[in-house]
Design a protein around this nucleic acid. Structure first.
Lengths: 335, 335
DNA sequence: TTGTATGCGTTATCAG
DNA sequence: CTGATAACGCATACAA
């Protein structure tokens, strides 16, 4: 079934069929109905390739993320795909892994697929040097780039993110205000957002006059799927560092802290306060349940798609949309 | 940049450029090099739409799943995407949700996108009646259908799954053999795989001469992200049913059981044994850690892609690939 | 081994 | 409002 078959069966030209297909208002209702009937009767669907050639678009958005099985990223991808679908766009998903060099290749690849825009999910795609980010500039010359949970200043690049610095600053401050000054900071990523969080923590500690805060920051290298190993890690730290609070850049790390405390017989939150980040489903898995920072992912993804639709429609859209997270208090904190 | 530009710059015809592009061996090495140099110099990439029209393929596989943020499905999607990517295929992701009617529309949609094959992730796509599954038959007339964690007999449909019946039978049997006969079975899905698991449980109970096993099966309706609500649910059951073992069709449900026990002051595993399913990251979040059934998802996805590649290459491939899961013993069981 | 000509199924630009 | 026709960029059968 092609547009020619339909046109001959309906007794019109292919141009008219095309107009009906694309919802042009310059078709007489009677003609439209006649064509529509044939289309439905034969269950005709336009060939996407031919359509792509004409439109230079397939109504498809490329989604790049490091690891779609990561709790946070998976949720982001899910929300994005749902909203895109609702607006008539398909999603081409690419999982790049965390290797920097490979990301560039994937971006090139997906650009060559003629997607209408590209969404970079998570802050792993933004490096600290100009050179590292050159590949994003290059891609942005071809197609709009949307950043979720990251920020980058460049034409045709739109950033939607949570102000992780301020949010972590507040989380740390609330713990400090509660009189807990010997806080451990656990993190596992030096991504754009990871660095912001850490700076927020440090600023809060500094602001409260805590001197040795730099020695209280620990990087965890292992997998976030093995909480007991994270607990081991915290246990090692505990041998040479005293702490009564844990702030983590990821819920999983915080859970490792809780597990350590349970092993060591430290009561939570009396002997140790713990705050996680992302407010994921993990927060309700442990006992007591984990207080965590909600970075309002759903709002972010919604804003991102709205911005994207605006950009594609040629409207002027904000280059940056900044949200602020908030602490969701549960059983691992008493303040 | 088109194939015409390259051909004129290289002083050859577009046919030769096309041959170079497609790795035909009927090109003189010198000519090939000359063309390749121009291609690289101008960073030329063939237009995917035009190529698609010629080849009737975009080297793209459609992936349908109900919810890509579900722990199990997310991992499956991740593994699949990685392996497809490694074999030169792109992934078009669609999250359908759990509504049956909507699934059909999505499948039609993705078929119309001319994907080379479709992977249905999870058993939610298979119904119990012929009529429910008609949409799969229809789609299979157009393109190969791959089922992950489900089974369906039809030409051009390939099933890769874990024998959930036998696996759950064994898990239940091991608990029964340990002398625990008052077992609670928790589940949250009547999908193909969900039914198999439940039947496995029932067969084991029956085989061990437990009479009232049908009254010990409970369906949980709520979200799997709120473990405390699951714990509430288990608490309600406990008011009228005695049990010393819990078998769950999902890790999250099992964790709800653990949380209930912690609240009620029941020691695990002394007073209650718990076994989950999927062996997800949740198993290491709780204390004690959750014994769970590993359904070897990674092996399944690998086998699926191998089968798919074979099918696309026109080779004869097994219609069904069946794996068997195994119980990973952790702290919530003592046998 | 290379070149020519044609088809692929649309969309879009003109006339009418 | 409708129809003819020219792109669109590539693959490929057929010629040379």
């Amino acid at each position: 079934m092609t547009i020619y078959d339909i046109s001959s069966k309906a007794g019109v030209s292919i141009a008219t069929v095309s107009r009906v297909l694309n919802g042009s208002d310059k078709v007489r209702p009677a003609t439209r109905k006649r064509v529509m009937d044939i289309i439905e009767q034969y269950d005709y669907t336009p060939n996407v390739f031919a359509r792509g050639m004409g439109l230079h678009s397939l109504q498809t958005i490329g989604i790049l993320c490091a690891d779609s099985s990561d709790l946070f990223l998976a949720k982001a991808v899910f929300y994005l795909e749902q909203e895109l679908q609702a607006n008539g766009y398909e999603s081409l998903l690419c999982c790049t892994g965390y290797n920097t060099d490979i990301k560039k290749n994937y971006l090139d690849l997906i650009v060559s697929k003629k997607v209408d825009a590209i969404i970079l999910v998570g802050s792993h795609f933004i490096g600290t040097t100009e050179e590292e980010n050159q590949y994003i500039k290059d891609a942005s010359a071809q197609v709009p780039i949307m950043l979720l949970n990251a920020s980058f200043d460049h034409p045709n690049v739109y950033s939607i993110f949570c102000d992780d610095y301020a949010t972590m600053f507040e989380a740390a401050s609330s713990m400090l205000d509660a009189g807990i000054r010997d806080i451990l900071y656990l993190y596992n990523s030096d991504s754009y957002s990871g660095i912001k969080k850490q700076k927020g923590f440090q600023a809060a500690m500094q602001g409260h006059g805590v001197a040795d805060y730099e020695k209280r920051v620990f990087f965890y290298e292992g997998s976030l799927e093995q909480m007991s190993e994270i607990a081991d890690f915290v246990g090692q730290i505990a041998q040479e560092t005293t702490f009564h609070g844990i702030l983590a850049s990821e819920d999983a790390l915080a859970i490792g802290g809780i597990k350590y405390a349970q092993r060591a017989g430290i009561p939570i939150p009396q002997g140790l306060s713990v705050i996680g980040y992302n407010n994921s489903m993990l927060t309700t898995c442990c006992t007591p349940e984990l207080s965590s920072v909600d970075n309002c992912l759903k709002n972010q993804t919604h804003q991102l798609i709205q911005t994207l639709l605006g950009v594609l429609a040629g409207e002027g859209m904000p280059t940056k949309s900044i949200f602020s997270g908030k602490l969701v208090k549960r059983g691992t904190t008493s303040f």
